[in-house]
Amino acid sequence: MFRLPMVPRVLKQLFNKPATNPFPARHLPKSITRFLEKVAAGKAELVLPLEVPEGFRGKIGYNPEGCTACSLCARVCPANAIEVNREEKTVTVYAGHCIQCGQCTEVCPKNNLFMTKEFLTATTDRYSEEMVLT
């Protein structure tokens, strides 16, 4: 017999809500920056992205206070995203290189490294100030 199990399903779906989450706006605005300005001014509404769960590994965060530059993090980092200068005791974290495995945050003895929930990190310059943490 000729069976098309999809037909009743699509007809039903026609009256259901679409599955798409229209982030950041229902239709792509002409200019994202202008749209964001409007949102800030309260003239437009931003459709929020879905919530991320507890324990999500987003963009890496670094708190230089109390860091001893022990370089354990650099030793386990698979992406060469952490640079340690042991003489000056400084650590530079390149978030643009980071692959968000979270290995450094586990190995850090002082908990100076942590994963944030931020995931909208697209940028045209991966060495910009937001993407390089010192």
């Binding site: 390149y94 310059d125 060495y127 100030e129 390089v132």
Partner: peptide
């Protein structure tokens, strides 16, 4: 590849 553009990036940041 992880070294590409690193120095220029640092210069840009210093200028800003």
């Amino acid at each position: 590849l992880h070294e590409v553009g690193k120095a220029e990036g640092a210069q840009r940041r210093a200028k800003n």
